[in-house]
């Protein structure tokens, strides 16, 4: 008697556990599905709740595209994310290699420095750095964001890769160095390729952190379409659409920014999930 109840109980639980999953995912699907439909409607239809009743209005998209340099936003975001992702590895990987494979005076201190560095909030650093950029006349150029995104992600990447290099055997590199290969060469030709799973993981993690960054972009990449990143561009679209009361255009703007990222995610979700999990667990 007792056993049977347990089995049915388990079966009920087996079905019940899908409910939170379905609700959670369905909510997002409905919300973005509605926004997709709204982006093809007119503003009056949106407010009166008769989406698409006058057919599909593709001109909402045309208008957003015409009046905003959406292409520019994408290019800026790609530059501001891609370049730092490469630079971070170029700076952090050698440092991590040294920290994990060498012994020297102050090693522990250096390593702990990076650990402390990765938990310093960026608002604590941004004011003096803004000062420098102002004096160097750099504000209003994308390079500020490239510098900031690179620098602020180096400590964590060093920390992560140090742990990763510790798991990579160094015998091969040592053998190569005995054969007359320089240490730098051994690092880039042997160690780094062997550490590539870790490098990919941490790069995906960095990429996800930088791609949608808002605070620094608001300070350094605002006010001008030449430097706006996607987040800033979308914010600009939304502001302009609220002033003209164009909700259809507003939702079209959201879709234009959302869809490419979404499609990319469809193809890379496994890699991204693995990267974020791997990079974030010890954050």
């Amino acid at each position: 008697m007792k056993k049977r109840r347990k089995i049915t109980g388990r079966r009920v639980l087996g079905v019940l556990r899908y409910i939170p999953l379905i609700l959670w995912v369905l909510f997002f699907a409905v919300a973005f599905g509605w926004i997709l439909l709204a982006s093809f409607s007119t503003t009056r239809e949106i407010f009166s709740n008769h989406l698409l009743s006058s057919g599909i209005h593709f001109e909402n998209y045309v208008e957003v595209w015409k009046y905003n340099n959406v292409g520019h936003y994408f290019i800026n975001s790609i530059l501001c994310t891609g370049i730092p992702c490469v630079l971070i590895i170029l700076i952090a990987a050698p440092a991590a290699y040294v920290l994990s494979k060498k012994n020297f005076f102050g090693k522990k201190l250096t390593f702990n420095g990076f650990v402390v560095g990765m938990s310093v909030p960026s608002v604590m650093l941004i004011i003096p750095i803004y000062c420098w950029f102002v004096r160097a006349n750099l504000v209003g150029h994308l390079i500020t964001l490239v510098i900031l995104y690179t620098a602020f992600n180096v400590p964590y990447t060093v920390y992560f890769l140090t742990a990763f290099f510790a798991t990579v055997p160094s015998a091969l590199a040592e053998a190569a160095m005995i054969d007359g290969c320089s240490e730098m060469r051994a690092l880039w030709k042997i160690m780094i390729p062997m550490a590539s799973p870790g490098i990919i993981t941490v790069t995906i993690f960095n990429f996800m952190n930088i791609w949608n960054e808002y605070f620094m972009a608001l300070i350094f990449a605002n006010g001008n379409d030449k430097i706006r990143t996607l987040s800033m561009g979308l914010q600009n679209i939304i502001t302009s659409m609220t002033y003209t009361g164009d909700w259809a255009g507003l939702f079209a703007g959201v879709m234009i920014v959302f869809l490419p990222t979404f499609i990319l995610y469809l193809f890379l979700s496994e890699k991204i999930v693995a990267g974020v999990t791997g990079g974030g667990v010890k954050g």
Binding site: L230, V257, I272
Partner: peptide, 10 residues
């Protein structure tokens, strides 16, 4: 995880 990949602005 999908909502985490979407810009907070959107």
């Amino acid at each position: 995880y999908l909502p985490n990949t979407v810009s907070a602005v959107a």
